[in-house]
Every structure is written in C-alpha cells, then in structure tokens.
C-alpha cells in the first residue's frame, strides 16, 4: 500500500473529517484533502489525481451515495476505490451502496482498528 497516495475525505462534519484524517495519519498516510459534500468533492476528484476516497453518506448538497454513482459513471474516476464511513445502517442502504460499487462500508461509530482492517482489505484486493 502506497503511503503517499492522495486521499479525499468527504464528510459534512469537520470534527469527523479531523478524526478520519488523524486516524489515516496514524496509519502513515499524509497526503489527505477534505471536502464537505459530494458537490465539493466531485470537481476536486475530476481535477486532482486522487487515489482513494473516504465518504460519508448523509450530507447536505450531494449525498455520498450519489457521489459514489457519479464517480462510477465517470470514465476517468470509475476505477477509484471508495470507502463509505457513515451512520446509515439500514440493510437496503448497505446493499444499495454495494450495488453502486462501493469498496468498503463502515458504520459509525467505528474504531481505529476497523478503519485499518477495511483499508488493508481494499488495497489487498486491488493489488
């Protein structure tokens, strides 16, 4: 796993962005940027050679599930691994995210160990 990979963290709550950023930094990732919803994230992704996206689901503006679908629709972005970190816990939603092509799904509240596990799993599959 390339620790220099460029990661975009998308969440409408700045505290949660900070938590995820700190946990990622703890795991050795330092090249991290933030966006507060899908509408902000999508242009950043289209212009910015990101390697990985961590996104919330429930956000004002463009929701995480729609961001996921937009990324999968875009030929230049479709390959991007996406990890969803969200409080949305309905079975239909998890299935919906899986069908839309999410690479990992973490329900809040979560632990540092869970985040590490899911990251390892996603990048193990990709390589």
């Amino acid at each position: 796993m390339d620790k220099n990979m460029k990661i975009l963290v998308v969440d409408d709550f700045s505290t949660m962005r900070r938590i995820i950023k700190n946990l990622l930094r703890d795991l050795g990732f330092t090249n991290i940027q933030e966006a507060d919803d899908g509408n902000t994230a999508l242009p950043m992704l289209q212009n910015g050679d990101f390697d990985f996206v961590v996104t919330d689901w429930n956000m004002p503006g463009m929701q995480g599930i729609d961001l996921l679908k937009e990324i999968r629709k875009d030929d230049n972005l479709a390959h991007l691994p996406i990890l969803m970190v969200t409080a949305e816990a309905k079975r239909e939603q998890i299935i919906m995210a899986a069908q839309a092509g999410v690479n990992g799904y973490i329900v809040k509240p979560f632990t540092a160990v869970t985040l590490k596990e899911k990251l390892d799993k996603i990048f193990e599959r990709i390589s």
Partner: peptide, 13 residues
C-alpha cells in the same frame, strides 16, 4: 490520545 480523538465522533452523530 487516540481514544480521546475517537470520543469526539459524538459531534457528528
């Protein structure tokens, strides 16, 4: 310290 950090996730929820 990580525990303190994670405890702040209440704000989002």
């Amino acid at each position: 310290m990580t525990e303190v950090l994670m405890a702040q996730d209440f704000q989002d929820i």
